[in-house]
Design a binder for these strands. Structure first.
Lengths: 341, 341
DNA sequence: TGGTAACATGTGAACGCTCTCAGGAAACCG
DNA sequence: CGGTTTCCTGAGAGCGTTCACATGTTACCA
């Protein structure tokens, strides 16, 4: 409205309403002990000047910002991007803003540096969407020095976190294959430095062992369809027999299926495949993909809940919430018949 | 190091180094005019106290935050999530932080409210990853009252923005089909309130008209594979003949291909399909999908460049940068032969 | 009617930084 | 050797809030 439009401050409002800045502050923050008349007069002035409190000044004065930091890794992939999206939704629902940063790799250095950078931004808490295992860094929760929660970190670690029981998911998948009669079950894993990939890999191994089966051939991919394709080709070149494949995510499964088809191996007639994640496209693959569903929505929601709880009680013992994935049966698994692979 | 670990301030450093707070500030901000001896003494104190400037206080004092706001819409979809990711990368490269918010719909109200919310967070600029057309809101760039750029807004609008020439992309796709001999070219569009979807739709119509062809049947989807599947079924029920399909994105194309297959229509033998986006999986679809590639990486990069330029010169006339998409030929288009659809 | 409680408002000092200005010391010049 | 410039440093105000405290009213009760 005014020409140069310097934003109105508490004092401007106070002056216009003929009260002190403090009274305005009381009105804004809904304190009792302000007369009804004054209140309306102040509110009027606020409206007239289009006043909104400066969050930076508030933050400086209160030392809290109603903002949390989110650090993401690999967020162009389906899983991480879902997690970030749902964390954002959860935070907004609780009236928190978020400052966001990604990290190019999971080295301690990079992570610490990014955390430090966010910390002097004055955030009230931190969500780490960094599927880093081992927690050598995170043991140093005294380094973070801030309420935080990790998503998708290693199961069983002594760190506030929400995880999906990937090991269990892998077991569901592999058991399903075993029940269909498969004995030679290969694997294409995700990058094993991702904790989730590692856990799925371990689950695959463990389930085979429990069933008295030898570990099948395994290759490591990089989450993408292209890498799944390459991994499958490497697997085929090894000329180890397999009638089923457990693949670390759905995109790689897609690539793998193509590689198989190029060798005239049809899914599921010749090779059964189960993926992981249940991306929205999986039901429309050719064939529709049997896979393991992870519930990213509640994951994000729970992470936010947990973080807020920790912000209230920062000294409570660390607590890990575990979510269980679910097998989604579609058409990429068939009972083992007379098959030559 | 100390027990309760109040973070060190400028004054703490000053005291330890035996200089004034102002001198410390000079050292921190790399001002000249501070003697070498003093500088090293101060740096030492900084290291000892593990001091890092409080960005909030800095922001308050300077009225700038080296932070930009990003508002996203539909960021669980491939395109938007890519744009956000690349904007984030570009900002970080320039030393800017980002505060992030999504918006549940594109109504003026919601958008204005979100913008206002970010504005009192003290951001230096704003990136709108909101494919809103019409710009009724954005005409009100004086509402935003902040340097900003829109990504993927309507082509030709008088607003600082970076856009991909979707119309051109659609033309590439449809021409390709026409050159393959197709005359009955149907469409599955994205949600037409997305400006990109609208532009692709218009491009489809225009290209057909230029070639003297009647507009084919068209159905609207919602970007997902499931919606593409449904749209294709509706299209088939209409019993209008088509030998080719232009689909608004790759996921919907995937769904459409499945719907076709369920009717025993094979791609590309019976129906040719071209998608849009070139998601990383498209090359691994069955059949590998011919599609139109959008370069989201340079899109994000350019958006950041443009924003920084506008932050330097906020009163420069608005400027739109246009990127051109590219046809990627794979295996989902075949020349029209003797076909009965 | 005096004393206390409850309410309503204002005053001034933080919060941690940057900016403007001024002053002292050193260096330079004719 | 006085005057001017340059370099280095410090003092203090200000950014827009909130918080702790002081003060002035009105109301209540014995």
């Amino acid at each position: 409205m005014t020409e140069k439009h310097r934003r109105a401050t508490l004092h401007d409002v106070a002056q216009l309403a003929g009260v002190s800045h403090q009274t305005v502050s009381r009105v804004v923050n809904g304190h009792r002990s302000v007369a009804a008349v004054t209140r309306t007069r102040v509110l009027e002035a606020i409206r007239e000047l289009d006043y909104a409190p400066n969050r930076v000044a508030q933050s400086l004065a209160t030392r809290r910002s109603r903002t949390v930091g989110v650090i993401g890794y690999g967020t162009t992939h389906y899983g991480p991007s879902q997690m970030v999206a749902h964390v954002e939704a959860g935070l907004k629902a609780q009236g928190y803003g978020l400052v966001y940063a990604t990290v190019p790799d999971l080295s301690d250095d990079v992570l610490r540096q990014q955390i430090a950078a966010l910390r002097n931004q004055l955030i009230d808490g931190l969500v780490l969407v960094t599927p880093v295992g081992g927690g050598h860094l995170m043991q140093a929760s005294d380094f973070i020095r801030l309420p935080f929660v990790m998503i998708d970190s290693m199961l069983g670690e002594h760190v506030p976190s929400v995880v999906i029981h990937q090991h269990h998911g892998a077991r569901l998948a592999v058991r399903h294959l075993i029940e269909a009669g498969h004995r030679a079950i290969g694997e294409i894993s995700g990058p094993l430095d991702w904790s989730g990939a590692k856990q799925r890999h371990d689950g695959w191994l463990a389930t085979l062992a429990e069933a008295g089966l030898a570990p099948g051939a395994s290759e490591e991919g990089a989450w993408t369809a292209a890498s799944g394709y390459q991994a499958a080709r490497r697997l085929l070149e090894r000329r180890e027999r397999f009638t089923a494949l457990f693949v670390g995510n759905d995109q790689m499964a897609l690539g793998a299926i193509r590689a198989l088809r190029e060798r005239s191996l049809r899914v599921p007639e010749h090779v059964s495949v189960v993926g992981f994640d249940d991306i929205p496209e999986a039901a429309y693959f050719e064939p529709p993909l049997t896979t393991v569903r992870q519930d990213f929505a509640t994951l994000g929601q729970q992470a936010v809940d947990l973080l807020l709880a920790r912000m209230d009680a920062p000294d409570a013992p660390p607590h890990q919430r575990v979510l269980y994935p679910q097998l989604i049966e579609r058409a990429s698994v068939a009972p083992l018949a007379a098959v030559t692979s």
